[in-house]
Amino acid sequence: MNNYPCKLFDQLTLNTPLILASGVSGNSDSLLVRAARSGAAAVTTKGFTLKYRKGADNPVSTDWGCGLITNLGLTNPGVDSMKYMLSAYVEKAGDEAVPVFANIYADTAEEFAELTRKTAALNPVLIEADLPAPDENLASEVTRAVCENAAGIPVSIKISPDCCRISRLAEAIRDGGASAITAVNPIPGMLIDAYAAKPFLSNGTGWISGPALKPIALNVIGELYQAVDLPIIGVGGVMSGLDMAEMLMAGARCVGVGSALYYEGYSAFSRIMNEFSAFMESEGYRDLDEIVGKIWWKS
């Protein structure tokens, strides 16, 4: 079976274009190993912040019918613990280790600078910085702060879809020096229980991921692809091999999954990849270059 190797940058080629997105099982070395052994071609850590964050009280998530809503409150032990997690991951995964993308989150560019220095010291293959708000000026400041402190490690900026000028945002990220863009983060939402007359999540609001996010993600990825010449890490509602093909055709170079681990568990990786290979073969595509951004090609 062809795995469809995926060249993200000159210095990084993944075995397949299917990876683990940030936040789902990314807070434990053993779970990252499980994702790697289940077929993820790269694993992304949970978002790490400068300091420990306890996170939100239960309830933190549910499946509302067309997707998920979650708000864990960015629970993480703080960037200093990432060192132990990553070394334990490498040790436990042994031969089966796949590249690690380190996802980080801060509220300001200054905080991002310090956080990036600490993260770069751990030598991940990519630093994925989560943009706190989809604002062009902030994007520009954050991208510069992260890239200047990344010690040459490629940087991807992860964006939210609730932005009206995606192309401007993309240009700010490119001009700031990023090597890639990750799109998309989940979109803010709220679930109310009418009988309780209260929001369901303890924090009131949360983020919508899973199937409901897919068309939104495809649209953003398409705009990014047309606006800038940077590799796009596509994320949002991918549940099947066809979803993956659609996201690549919109312009993504590789595809991350998160919520699929709720719908199916870790076997999602091999199933999605098998379905994707079957699609590629039946349609006669030989490699990823033949489909990435295909819906935009003129001819």
Binding site: G23, S28, V60, L72, T75
Partner: peptide
Amino acid sequence: MRCGMGLCGNCRIE
């Protein structure tokens, strides 16, 4: 348990 749906990893054991 937190999420109860296989997402957060909080309930993992060896």
